[in-house]
């Protein structure tokens, strides 16, 4: 792994998200109420809604377009919905958010 610093934890509000642009599209970086961070592909498996704009609750986010609930840990759609988005390694160290550069660069259109 090769961790890169993409910003401070406090740049994201608790129970909120911000977007990181990559060559292959946007990654949504979430911060939960308990200050965990998660990085997911910023496109709901349903109709590609921008997950970073959703309401974060517990360790899940609700897509702003049609209320699909996506697990931040697994990327899986919850309840009766079926689908999954890619997840990326993310962690917090010393108040900074780190993402794995290799995994981000390895993203493909597929």
């Amino acid at each position: 792994m090769s961790w890169i610093d993409i910003g401070a934890l406090d740049d994201i509000p608790a129970r909120g998200a911000r977007v990181v642009k990559t060559v292959h599209g946007c990654v949504a970086v979430f911060r939960t109420g308990a200050d965990e961070v998660f990085a997911l592909e910023n496109a709901c498996p349903h109709k590609a809604g921008p997950l970073a704009e959703g309401i974060v609750h517990g360790k899940a986010v609700t897509c702003p377009l049609h209320n699909w609930v996506i697990s931040l840990e697994t990327g899986l759609a919850q309840d009766a919905d079926e689908g999954q988005v890619s997840t990326y390694p993310a962690k917090v160290e010393g108040g900074r958010i780190l993402l794995d550069a290799h995994r981000l660069k390895a993203r493909t259109a597929a």
Partner: peptide, 15 residues
């Protein structure tokens, strides 16, 4: 205004 911008832009680095 800053919360409307991406947290980071890795496309520039990759280029």
């Amino acid at each position: 205004a800053e919360i409307y911008a991406p947290l980071a832009n890795l496309t520039l680095e990759a280029a």
